[in-house]
Simulated assay, not measured.
Amino acid sequence: MLDAGYLLLMIGPLAAPLPAPLPLTEAVKSVSVNSGGTRSGFQISFHTGKTSPLNLAMLPLGFFDPMITRVVITMVYRGIPQVLMDGVVTRQEIAPSNTPGESTLTLTGEDLSVLMDVVQVRMPWPAVPEAGRVATILAKYAAFGIVPMVIPPMMPSVDSPTSRFDTQDATDRAYLDQLAQANSYVFFVEPGPVPLTSIAYFGPDIRIPVPQPALNVNMDAFTNVESLSFSLDGLAKKQTILLTYDPATGKIPIPVPVPNLSLTHPPLGLRPTPPAQILFEGAATRLTPDRAAKRALEIMMSARDAITGQGSLDVAAYGGILRARMLVGVRGAGLAYDGLYYVNTVSHTISPGRYRQSFTLSRDGLIAAGPAVLP
């Protein structure tokens, strides 16, 4: 498909998808993958027609039926395979055309976490810590190659079952999202590192601290991106003050400023953006000390990055595949905006002979923290 890479497509039943047959791979029109958020998705378009095997056999026999068809998309670039998507088809669309060769079949789907969002479960969890609940829920999906990576909360709280206990009254996916939000964590399913395996991550939103090849803009022959722009939101940073009562009398309110700094997203710039708003949180006065500390940690973990960037690139010009949830350097944007950034999301668009990506970046603070952008 590309001079330095090619696409591998696996499709079939949930338990054992197989390499796509030749008529199917030859009919691929385009492949799109969105990754980096709490849910990832994909869309594949195929050329079809009246005499196409897709139309005559595969569709009628249920080869593309939603919720039972698994798709694994792997890109081999310069000899290195990277699993872009391991998901389930959730929707199929057929668009017949009066123009020969223009009829298309489109498959849309999500990552394997969609399997956790099907059945509503009512389950009591007496005296079970959050990490134990997450591991127990994820164990049910080991048959699909999902490997759990569970990081226990920084401030765990286990109530006595004689006083109260939590009850799951939602789908597994919704309940895992609730636990993640309550602990200022994230939950997502990341495909790979090898086909037919995925990692279910429950923990703090930490970016892998390994910089990818830098994005060069406005550097003549060294430019490797098609577009790149940045914006600084002056209202993104907030100073929150928790109000709590003194432990001696329990009547005198004490203001406790919460640092406007994410523990998992430290500033990557020398000049951090100052907070533009001051908020008072009085609800902490009704919380126990451990719950108040947990609330302060939640505020710190949810601090937003003031600087955001977005752009697009051609993989052939960039020389590699940009991955989400990692770091990347920027050159040529000027003294204020050069430096390292977090890669939040990446969208892949693959068509015969071309591989493009669009991406979003973020960080807090102007001016690069280091003297040079590497690599």
Rank of each mutant, 00 (worst) to 15 (best):
G109P: 14
V88Y: 09
G109T: 05
M116A: 11
S97F: 06
Q92G: 14
R91P: 02
L112N: 09
V119K: 15
E102H: 11
V89Y: 05
M123G: 02
G101F: 07
I94K: 08
R91C: 01
L115Y: 06
D117E: 08
N98L: 14
S113P: 15
D117G: 03
R91Q: 13
S97P: 08
I94A: 12
V83F: 03
M116K: 14
V83D: 04
D111E: 10
G87K: 11
T104Y: 03
G87T: 07
P96V: 02
P96Y: 05
D111C: 07
E102M: 11
L84K: 03
S103C: 01
V119G: 03
N98E: 11
S103E: 04
L107W: 01
P96F: 08
T99F: 07
R122A: 07
V83I: 00
D117R: 02
T106M: 04
G101K: 00
T99I: 15
E110Q: 14
E102W: 06
A95M: 04
V89P: 13
V88R: 15
M116R: 15
R91S: 12
V88E: 10
M85R: 02
V118M: 12
L84R: 00
T90K: 09
Q92V: 14
S97Y: 05
E93I: 05
V88D: 09
E102A: 14
N98A: 12
S103N: 01
V114I: 14
Q82D: 10
S113K: 09
L105H: 10
T106C: 02
E93F: 02
E102C: 01
T104L: 07
L105Y: 13
V83N: 03
E110C: 10
L105N: 01
V119D: 09
S103I: 02
V118I: 15
V119A: 15
S113E: 11
V119R: 14
V89Q: 05
M85V: 03
G101W: 01
M123A: 09
L107F: 11
L115S: 04
Q92E: 08
V119I: 05
T108N: 13
D111S: 09
P100M: 03
S113M: 10
E93Y: 04
M85P: 11
E93G: 01
G87V: 00
V83Q: 00
D117K: 03
T104C: 01
L105K: 03
A95G: 01
P96G: 00
V118H: 11
R91W: 04
T104H: 08
V88N: 11
L107C: 00
G109C: 09
D111V: 06
D111F: 08
G101P: 10
P96Q: 02
I94W: 12
V119T: 12
A95T: 12
V114Y: 07
I94C: 10
L107V: 05
R91A: 04
I94D: 06
L105E: 02
P100W: 06
D117H: 15
V83T: 08
T104R: 15
E110D: 12
T90I: 07
